[in-house]
């Protein structure tokens, strides 16, 4: 029991660090990565909470969260790069980012 409590505390500390990176993170990819790793920590926390309360039935739900987190991160990255979800990720377009970090004034002028 103590072991699970310590593990939960460590996971919450890691969650805090991920939130700090999502708030501070200078680049967009820092923030995507922070969100993704936060999702992973959520999966772990749900698993540990299941054992902490003596009901590990919640492990199935933690697995679903892992799948959801994976799909959401792919969707965010794909949308971020291609600005639509309906583009195949192969071909000539795959190497050409359509949405760069810099030209904010340009977008505002449009």
């Amino acid at each position: 029991m103590t072991m699970f409590a310590v593990a939960a505390a460590a996971i919450i500390a890691a969650m805090t660090l991920a939130i700090v990176r999502a708030v501070a993170g200078p680049t967009l990819y820092d923030r995507v990565l922070a969100g993704n790793s936060f999702g992973t920590k959520t999966v772990l926390l749900i698993g540990v909470m299941g054992y902490l309360t003596g009901r590990p039935d919640f492990l199935d739900i933690a697995l679903l969260y892992a799948l959801l987190n994976f799909a959401a991160t792919i969707a965010i990255l794909k949308f971020f790069r291609y600005r639509t979800l309906s583009v195949a990720m192969t071909g000539a377009e795959a190497d050409r980012p359509r949405f760069e970090e810099a030209p904010e004034e340009e977008r505002a002028a449009r």
């Binding site: 969650m15 991920a18 939130i19 999502a22 708030v23 993170g25 967009l28 923030r31 995507v32 922070a34 969100g35 936060f38 999702g39 959520t42 926390l45 749900i46 909470m49 919640f58 739900i61 679903l64 969260y65 959401a72």
Partner: peptide, 29 residues
């Protein structure tokens, strides 16, 4: 705004964990 979007995802994952801790598994999912 991108930070706000990612943080809102983090916010809802946090509230989902809180719902799981309250035994409301379906709401959490």
């Amino acid at each position: 705004l991108f930070a706000v979007v990612m943080l809102s995802g983090v916010y809802s994952l946090l509230s989902a964990s809180f719902f799981v801790s309250l035994d409301a598994v379906d709401v959490a999912f």
